[in-house]
Write a protein that binds this DNA or RNA. Structure first.
Length: 861
RNA sequence: GGGUGCGUAGCUCAGAGGAAGAGCGUCUGCCUUACGAGCAGAAGGCCGUAGGUUCGAGUCCUGCCGCACCCACCA
């Protein structure tokens, strides 16, 4: 095998993914403890974005890690039909072809959406493959496939039978662009500057007027009362009197209701029962008339007199002008208030009273609250628990009907003859009560999130009693972003308890949202999105994955700068070349027991144990960034920078075979640790090792081997590193970096191995033992036992003097601090033994070093 | 109105009780058994601010100032 000097990701990725799938590594083996994850199904609206890439990467890290640890791993892939989002996307598409949904009709339109769905499902599938996700494609699901549709119907029918789904006329959120109602969660509130209009409403007896304040003067067309607070002294005498609604000339009553805040505006409120949630409640308490003044597109309807046909903003303009002309407008103030927007099209939503289907949430919430309170379901990081619980405690009924065509049709039929309502899991052709054939199915579909809520068990085959369901429910961990805790996570927990009588998952790992380098949301309109698939092509999938993992820390945003990918592409290249180095030196490799180990060998093997432990623990705690960082630092800063450099000369010595075995062992373990993060690269390289097996995908996770933990070796090698750094430091400072030189040692004699390492790592020509500091030398390292000097013959001394002065200044401060510390009785009586001991050691080291530096400085001068 | 997160090197961010870390950028040297996508070295920090707890505080507590986000029937 011949590795090039550069790592070329595109040449290795496809090859391995195909092989992994062909060999069935991603299908659970059926034995061992299950580890199960369901993918948050991407919407079929388009390409996956960087948030998906993060989400998928983190899941894959967990799944691959658990697979290597011998778990019976199952990761179920799938896609979401995404009702409103997809319907909007397809509408835009057919509009670009000059067609409209209404012209095509429901059936034709749905045909087109299904074509769209197939196309994008395929694309998404390919994108998930590109990212290397080890999902079991044989179990792929789609929220609208047959099995899941059955699950949806069964859930609807059962909830209905238990009185947990009902239909009724309530205030709902209407999107005039999407022409459907939305749940409260689908409305995004945005603070906006607005005007507060003060309007005179004259009393019908002509005696006087009352002033109301409103931000939406156009809704006065639907006013059916004016309300004041019953305790408000100013308005004591006007309660129950009548006022004339300006422009409309309708007589409406003044009522008293607690809801009115006397402090706000004038303390008098116009009541528009059909277009304001509060007014709706007030109107019900007072039996007021409901007048709907808007049509489906939020234009004034036939109830709006002369304003009919105007959209709400135009109507506002005209009405304000007419009020002004009529002398009704008292004043206009600026005000901040929040306005609801559709989360799919961003239009302002319009509150309307409509007959819709709802899920009664309070009774369902109980178990979902207990589950999280008692820790049966655990949020990571746990601060999200509070967010979840707050929502769940205050949960409101869930409006689940949507006036769309794309989705699960509501399984309810109405008999035109006897008025019977039939709720059924199977299609109904005939009224069971009067046997009439003139029945029709409810036109509406269900909220997309209704089917998503069933995902953890519907994907396993529910309502069938499948083996998968038996074996793999509940799932192990759900990985998702905090933006869908309410939409999805909360509802899955609710449905899991209701229909499986069991939690849907044990852990919920909440990751960050990806933003651009300025902290803005990535969006198509801003054009600031970074496409993960593009990045994968440009830098390689493994670097992209590693980047996302190392950025997955605790904050709630990742500000993504493309430059990160380059950094970790370099890391991939480093791994590539380190492996190359090892392979180049393995021509005569023979496996042998690891005995006769040198200091460097013992050091790297000990460091390896620490790294295995660190990576393993971090993954168990979902500390992806810590895990990634641990392996990065070990591989680059310890294995490459120090061990390989130490190995170079050792490979020419009598310990060649041992060094080869250590190189292979450390590299083997490193690649295994790396595999969850960089699956392709690790497989490609591992296959070239003499210890390779069938696939690193199913290789075992490295275990800590205590016999290789060696604190003494670590300490000794640490000393070697300090000496070498000291030597390099002096020479670099004195412009003699490339020159070989002589090293003088005063004090303790170093071992052969230690001298050997120093010689090679620091480019030393000869080592001499001396009784005192030689002429023309500079101190490179000092401790209690020995001093090390570098020969600096022929070097300009002035530079070294200023360096020494600086260092001495630093050391003096250090010494002062330690002395103060050690004379502090409180410190001595309260600090831990270890801390005190360490402080003493540091003081004596500092002191001896200081002494020497001062002496050298004197010498030089 | 309630809640959460964040202010650490020029930039982007880790760190969470024993005198500050990384990557990128900057500067200086390097053809060294893989890697110039590299190697060696350096410069650069009152860890937002004011108090408190502690022998000891980027780290824990409180107030304040900034930034971001979430929830809430703010006419």
């Amino acid at each position: 095998m011949d590795l090039g000097t550069r790592y070329m990701p595109e040449q290795i990725e496809k090859k391995w993914y195909t092989k992994w799938v062909q060999n069935g590594y991603f299908t659970p083996k059926g034995s061992g403890t299950p580890f199960v994850v369901v993918i948050p199904p991407p919407n079929i609206t388009g390409r996956i974005h960087m948030g998906h890439a993060l989400n998928i990467t983190l899941q894959d890290i967990l799944v691959r890690y658990k697979r290597m640890r011998g778990f019976d791993t199952l990761w179920i892939p799938g896609e979401d039909h995404a009702g409103i989002a997809t319907q909007n996307a397809v509408e835009r598409y057919i509009e670009s072809q000059g067609k409209r949904r209404e012209e095509l009709g429901r059936e034709e339109f749905l045909k087109i959406v299904w074509q769209w769905a197939e196309k994008y499902r395929l694309e998404i599938r390919q994108q998930i493959e590109t990212l290397g996700a080890s999902v079991d494609w044989t179990r792929e699901r789609f929220t609208l496939d047959e099995g899941l549709s059955n699950a949806v119907r069964k859930v609807f029918v059962e909830l209905y039978k238990n009185g947990l789904i009902y239909k009724g006329k309530y205030m709902v959120n209407w999107c005039p662009r999407c022409k459907t109602v939305l749940s409260d969660e689908e409305v995004e509130h945005e603070e906006k500057k607005a005007k507060l209009y003060y309007v005179k409403y004259p009393f019908s007896d002509g005696s006087d007027y009352i002033v109301v304040a409103t931000t939406r003067p156009e809704t006065m067309l639907g006013d059916t009362a004016v309300a004041v607070n019953p305790t408000d002294e100013r308005y004591k005498n006007v309660i129950n009197r009548k006022v004339i609604l300006p422009l409309v000339n309708r007589e409406i009553p003044v009522i008293a209701d607690e809801y009115v805040d006397p402090q706000f505006g004038t303390g008098a409120v116009k009541i528009t029962p059909s277009h304001d949630p509060n007014d709706f409640e007030v109107a019900k308490r007072h039996n007021l008339e409901f007048i709907d003044i808007f049509d489906d597109e939020a234009r004034i309807n036939e109830n709006g007199g002369k304003y009919i046909g105007l959209d709400r903003y135009k109507a506002r303009e005209m009405i304000v002008r007419d009020l002004q002309d009529g002398g009704y407008l008292v004043k206009v103030e600026d005000i901040d208030h929040s306005v609801g927007h559709c989360y799919r099209c961003d239009r302002e939503i319009e509150p309307r009273v409509m007959d819709q289907w709802f899920v009664s949430m309070k009774p369902l919430a109980q178990k979902a609250i207990e589950a999280v309170e008692t820790g049966q379901v655990r949020f990571v990081p746990d601060r999200w628990k509070k967010v979840y619980l707050h929502w769940m405690y205050n949960v409101r009924d869930w409006c689940i009907s949507r006036q769309l065509w794309w989705g699960h049709r509501i399984p309810v039929w109405y008999c035109d003859d006897c008025g019977e309502i039939i709720v059924s899991e199977t299609d109904v052709k005939e009224c069971p009560k009067c046997h009439s054939g003139s029945i029709r199915q409810d036109e509406d579909v269900l909220d997309t999130w209704f089917s998503s809520a069933l995902w953890p068990f519907s994907t396993l085959g529910w309502p069938e009693k499948t083996q998968d369901l038996e074996k793999y429910y509940p799932t192990s961990v759900l990985v998702t972003g905090f933006d869908i805790i309410f939409f999805w996570v909360a509802r899955m927990i609710v449905m899991g308890y209701q229909f499986m009588n069991e939690k849907p998952f044990t852990d919920v790992y909440i990751h960050q949202l990806i933003r651009d380098k300025y902290g803005r949301k990535m969006s198509k309109s801003l054009g600031n999105g970074i496409d993960p698939i593009d990045m994968s092509k440009k830098y390689g999938t493994d670097p992209v994955r590693f980047t996302l993992a190392i950025l997955a820390a605790q904050g709630s945003d990742i500000k993504l700068d493309e430059r990160y990918f380059d950094t970790y592409r370099k890391f991939a290249n480093k791994i590539w070349n380190a492996t190359r180095f090892v392979l180049i030196n393995l021509s005569d490799y023979q496996e042998k027991p690891l005995d006769g180990l040198s200091l460097a060998d013992r050091w790297i093997l000990s460091r390896l144990q620490k790294t295995i432990l660190a990576v393993t623990q971090a993954l168990e705690n979902y500390d992806f960034n810590v895990a990634a960082k641990s392996i990065y630092e070990f591989f680059w800063n310890e294995f490459c920078d120090w061990y390989i450099e130490s190995a170079k000369p050792m490979l020419n010595g009598e310990n060649r075979a041992t060094v080869q075995n250590v190189l292979v062992k450390v590299l083997d373990s490193s690649l295994r640790l790396l595999h969850p993060f960089m699956p392709f690269l690790s497989e490609e390289l591992w296959q070239n090792l003499p210890v390779a097996g069938e696939s690193i995908t199913i290789a075992s996770w490295p275990q800590v081997e205590d016999n290789f933990s060696d604190d003494l070796a670590e300490k000794n090698f640490e000393m070697i590193m300090q000496i070498v750094r000291g030597i390099r430091n002096v020479r670099s400072e004195l412009d003699m970096a490339s020159k070989q030189c002589t090293l003088y040692i005063h004090g303790k004699h170093l071992s052969e191995q230690e001298q050997f390492l120093i010689k090679h790592l620091a480019n030393i020509k000869t080592i001499e033992y001396v009784e005192s500091k030689p002429q023309n030398s500079a101190t490179a390292f000092v401790n209690q036992e020995f001093h090390i000097y570098v020969d600096i013959t022929g070097v300009d001394i002035q530079k070294e003097i200023s360096r020494l002065e600086k260092n001495i200044e630093k050391l003096l401060k250090e010494k002062e601090w330690y002395v103060k510390k050690l004379s502090d009785e409180k410190f001595l009586s309260h600090a831990l033994e270890d801390v005190i001991k360490e402080t003493r050691e540091k003081l004596s080291e500092t002191e001896s070093r200081l002494k020497v530096l001062q002496q050298i400085l004197g010498d030089l001068r």
